[in-house]
Design a protein around this nucleic acid. Sequence first.
DNA 1: CTGCCACTTCAAGCCGACTTGAGGTCAAGC
DNA 2: GCTTGACCTCAAGTCGGCTTGAAGTGGCAG
Lengths: 142, 142
Amino acid sequence: MKFLDIGEVSAQSGFRPSALRYYEEAGLISSVSRHGLRRQFPPEVLLQLKLIAMGKLAGFSLEEIAGMFGRNGTPDLPRAGLHQKANEMDRQIRELTALRDTLRHVAECPAPSHIECPTFKRLLEVAGQRSAVRKNITGKQR
Amino acid sequence: MKFLDIGEVSAQSGFRPSALRYYEEAGLISSVSRHGLRRQFPPEVLLQLKLIAMGKLAGFSLEEIAGMFGRNGTPDLPRAGLHQKANEMDRQIRELTALRDTLRHVAECPAPSHIECPTFKRLLEVAGQRSAVRKNITGKQR
DNA sequence: CTGCCACTTCAAGCCGACTTGAGGTCAAGC
DNA sequence: GCTTGACCTCAAGTCGGCTTGAAGTGGCAG
């Protein structure tokens, strides 16, 4: 079996060795053995790292990512938990879309005051939903 | 004119006073005057804060958010810059969608090995695009 | 006039996510 | 057998984004 040195994993994943060690420490990935001192990573780690990269891009903390895909790379969470995460992401996608549309809008709209503009108001609605949700999230903000 | 004390802004926006001071310091919002020592915020600040909240949720740094919507609340960037941001967000939305679908998939898929599964492969494609992009972002990671 | 209490400033602290640096190990090639 | 270079550990540092705490101020209700 060909295992990977940290350097190869780094080269193929784009994460720095220091980050990979940090992730291992944090339990997001794991090396299977040592060759001398050197960690030996199984090839699957590359897949895991792709998932981690996506999770990060999606704005999840390492802890949350670890919660989604256990150290085995595929999730060990109860289905309900995964569905809940997915639902949260739906909300986030809607928000992101609204913000994107808002950016496009203000880039184009020649209206003197955006506050009058229907597109801007649509944004406000979405933001409004958000502030309701925010209450739930507040504990996290603390 | 009724201006708002920081406490009212806090209550209505969900941001803590300390965060609001921090944002003012950072140039994201601004108070118009003082009543004694107390900052007086114009009501528009609530709109700005909604935009800030969305931007944060979208994973932008405060600096980036400040770049999108100048301290006046509506953007003062060149149109091209806004469009570019919007395009970046498109990419991010696609990724987020892929991750969400992946979560839903693994929650349902009874396949013994996900690596065999077409849905999982679709994810890998998106992640693949990502790693190309990652090169550009790498400077930031440094 | 006196509290009170919501505000103020400023410095320091904290958390997440890494990076950096010093000093050490060790398998492989010459 | 020796060197080399990629790895190792561990502690400390960095950066963004706030929070916390101490000490002070000042408008307004009683």
